[in-house]
């Protein structure tokens, strides 16, 4: 988001907090694509849309108490990040509860879900191929649960850095940055 749009959002959100209903539409027009894009970086398409909608509604529900001294963009993205975290936790809980993800009701594998899973694995492999071999090896060892060849703290730090590079490579490869 460029500086001018960011300043406009700051001003409009401050007006909305003050009770100026005329600022509703400009804030909506600015935030909806922004939140949708932000959520789609961290969640699959369907969940991203839901999370963006919930985040947008929550932003407006709290707009009356927005403190104009705070940064409007950070405040908005903070609410969206929390919503994304909630959706992720919900997905994780669903998986832990044993809800079928890939299999159909009769126990056979759902071909569409299998194809998506295969596609996802290929995308991860492609992103790993873009990394330094040491980073890729670290992440493979971490994913496989192999005992770390280094001390725990060093290995964790290395995994953290390799994950950051993987995320960056993934986004660049998928045209999101």
């Amino acid at each position: 988001m460029d500086r001018a749009r960011r300043e406009a959002l700051q001003g409009d959100l401050a007006r909305l907090a003050d009770g100026d209903r005329d600022a509703f539409h400009p804030v909506f027009v600015c935030l909806w694509p922004l939140l949708r894009g932000f959520a789609s970086r961290y969640l699959p398409a369907g969940d991203a849309e839901d999370a963006a909608q919930e985040a947008l509604v929550k932003v407006f529900a709290r707009a009356a108490v927005f403190d104009a001294r705070r940064d409007a963009l950070h405040w908005t993205l903070g609410i969206a990040a929390y919503e994304i975290k909630t959706v992720r936790r919900r997905r994780q809980r669903r998986r832990e509860d044993g809800e079928p993800c890939v299999e159909t009701g009769d126990g056979r594998a759902d071909p569409e879900a299998l194809a998506m899973a295969r596609e996802r694995e290929q995308a991860v492999e492609a992103a790993l191929a873009l990394l330094e071999p040491t980073d890729a090896a670290t992440l493979r060892a971490y994913a496989a649960g192999d005992p770390p060849p280094l001390s725990g703290a060093t290995f964790r730090k290395r995994v953290q850095r390799a994950l950051a590079r993987l995320r960056l490579a993934w986004r660049i490869d998928h045209g999101r940055q």
């Binding site: 509703f24 539409h25 929550k58 407006f60 529900a61 707009a63 009356a64 108490v65």
Partner: peptide
């Protein structure tokens, strides 16, 4: 979505 956001705003 805009109508839903508007209702949330007024409630807020």
């Amino acid at each position: 979505l805009s109508a839903r956001a508007r209702r949330a705003y007024e409630r807020g």
